[in-house]
């Protein structure tokens, strides 16, 4: 992949503006909360709940943007705009991207 999974300048800016402790706390909140959002997404897809699906994808996109998780944000955005999928193909891809993004964010926190 040519595009990096994380744009580190976004988190650096966040840390500058809000304080590094707060930025770390915020990332941790995201890492705790994201599995719930992915679960919401799966549940909405399974139940054919288009509003819930859009909302969950929207939340993931919004948070991914906050931390510079560019790939995750792009995937979530296309899911938000695309509506309910015929098959649940986009979800496993999103989960994999999330897992990689989470590792990268943890790495940033340890720095």
């Amino acid at each position: 992949m040519t595009e990096p999974i994380i744009d580190p300048s976004v988190c650096a800016e966040l840390s500058d503006a809000m304080g590094s402790d707060f930025a770390a706390e915020l990332i941790e909140t995201f890492l705790n909360d994201a599995p719930n959002m992915i679960a919401d997404l799966k549940k909405a897809a399974a139940e054919g709940d288009a509003d819930g699906y859009r909302r969950a994808a929207h939340s993931i996109k919004s948070n991914a943007d906050t931390f510079g998780a560019v790939q995750l944000a792009a995937m979530a955005r296309s899911m938000e705009l695309g509506g309910l999928p015929d098959a649940d193909a986009p979800i496993p891809a999103l989960e994999a991207t999330y897992a990689a993004s989470a590792e990268a964010l943890k790495g940033l926190m340890d720095e």
Binding site: A17, M18, F22, E25, L26, T29, F30, D33, R55, S59, S62, N63, T66
Partner: peptide
């Protein structure tokens, strides 16, 4: 905001 990260972020932003 329904999203926890956004709530924290905005609260912190306006408190600053």
């Amino acid at each position: 905001d329904d999203n926890k990260v956004n709530r924290l972020l905005l609260s912190r932003g306006v408190e600053l």
